[in-house]
Simulated assay, not measured.
Amino acid sequence: MSSIQNDRVWSWGPLTVRLMLAQTAVLVIGLIIVVATAVLVGPSMFYHELVEAGHAYEATGLVHLEDAFRSVILTALVIGGLPALFIAGLLSFYLYRTIGRSLSSFSTAAKEVAAGNYEVDVTSTKLGPEFDSLATSFNDMATRLAAVDNTRRQLLADLAHEMRTPLASLKGHLEGIEDGVVEWDARTIGIFNAQIARMERLARDIRQLTADEEATAKLQLTLQDPGALAAQAVAAIEPAAADKNITVAASSAGPLSTPVPLDPERMGQVLGNLLENALGHTPPGGAITVHTENTPDAVTITVTDTGEGISPENLQNVFARFYRVETGREAHRAGSGLGLAISKSLVEAQGGTLEATSDGLGHGASFHIRIPRTPAPQ
């Protein structure tokens, strides 16, 4: 990360010149007022003080000394005032030079960010906590912009990679039809429909993921019973599970407690994604359970399957976009590889966390949704 230093070659700028002129004007006007007060008002005030103190005779005798008094006062003020004005000017110059140099570093950093270079770092200006806070905020902004840009680039690269497979399949079959090698029959039509549906699903999931991560999806948080939402999700997937000879069950434990703020539609979407994921990785004869654990601090919903499991090296990547475990064997599956990423973003938007655990390949997997009873600030 490039550092924007504050000791760069510095030149006078319009702002610094204006500040210096304003400060100098204030100092000069102040000195003029002091001189005028001491020379014009001082002798008269001294004279009246003597009269009021009962020294009128002496005061009358001192009238002729007013000119000498004024001359001495003026000389003293000039001798003391000019060096003071010079020193004040030097201090002002140093201060405004430092401010101008700091503003120059911010300006340079802003131009770098505007040009697409987010690897900038504005160093501390040593001008106080306000400027240090500004520098920290600017660096945080640049870091977040870099993260957003990296996410955008990665998303585009992943999208291009993910689109390549269905497009290649469509192109290959079209070429086969043109060459007369592939017949336009029900099987070919089914392949075309499947690949088109895959791309449509991919586009829809990307739009959903983008909306969730940018907080454009409006959450409708209301008090909900997580156990009831889990039971609804299980009931919705039971027919598909029965077709694959997989049992699905819901359970709950822990003391009864108050509902938690959730968006029922979004949480239903999360549970549906997790159950569909479990159904796709569980062989016939397996089982899927959804267990709701109530504690005073949080509610935890765990979706567990007896399927293929996840290896330790793949476990940390299951929530990554487009990630599929053993992609070669799973190429026939219709998922876009975004379901778990969408689920994680939706859970986090509601103040919760989503984690995955597995004892390894062949030992199934569990996904844990934890929703605090005191939701995190949105």
Rank of each mutant, 00 (worst) to 15 (best):
D149S: 11
H55Y: 10
A235W: 02
A53Q: 12
L155W: 01
D7T: 07
L229D: 05
W184M: 10
A59Q: 07
G285Y: 10
T108H: 12
A25C: 04
L346S: 06
P296D: 13
N150M: 12
L229K: 06
G54W: 04
D67Q: 08
A157C: 00
L202A: 08
R152L: 09
T125K: 12
R370E: 08
L256C: 05
F86A: 13
A249W: 00
L219W: 05
V34L: 12
V347G: 02
A110L: 12
G337K: 11
F93T: 01
F86Y: 13
A68R: 10
L103P: 04
R321A: 15
V148F: 05
G61F: 06
T289H: 14
G286L: 05
T60V: 07
K344F: 02
F106Q: 06
I33F: 15
A253I: 00
L219Q: 04
S169D: 06
V72R: 07
F69E: 06
S102Q: 09
I177P: 14
L85S: 10
V325W: 03
A253V: 05
T188S: 15
Q208L: 12
A147S: 12
E200N: 15
A253S: 14
T37P: 01
D185L: 04
Q5M: 06
E130H: 08
M163V: 14
A349K: 12
G268V: 04
T125G: 15
V260E: 01
D359I: 11
A242R: 13
E66Q: 13
R204F: 01
G364P: 02
T374Q: 14
H368I: 15
I79S: 02
F138Y: 12
L271S: 01
L271D: 00
G54C: 12
N277C: 08
P283N: 10
I29M: 13
L90F: 15
L202Y: 05
A53C: 01
E66G: 08
Y57S: 09
Q378V: 15
D263R: 01
L340Y: 07
F46I: 15
G362A: 03
L90E: 08
A356L: 04
L21M: 10
A233R: 02
E175Y: 03
P129Q: 03
A197T: 08
T258Q: 12
V270N: 03
L50C: 03
L275Y: 03
R204I: 02
T75G: 10
L62W: 15
L174Y: 00
A331S: 10
V270H: 02
I288D: 00
R266N: 06
T357K: 10
R164S: 11
P377K: 04
I301V: 15
T282D: 09
P284Y: 04
P43N: 01
I371D: 01
L202C: 11
G285D: 11
A147N: 07
Q378F: 15
P259K: 00
A157E: 07
T210F: 06
R187Q: 05
G352S: 02
E276Y: 14
D205F: 03
E183P: 01
D305I: 05
G339E: 13
V270R: 03
R164F: 05
S11Y: 11
E214W: 00
V148T: 07
A38K: 05
A231N: 09
G272C: 08
A76S: 09
T75C: 06
W12A: 08
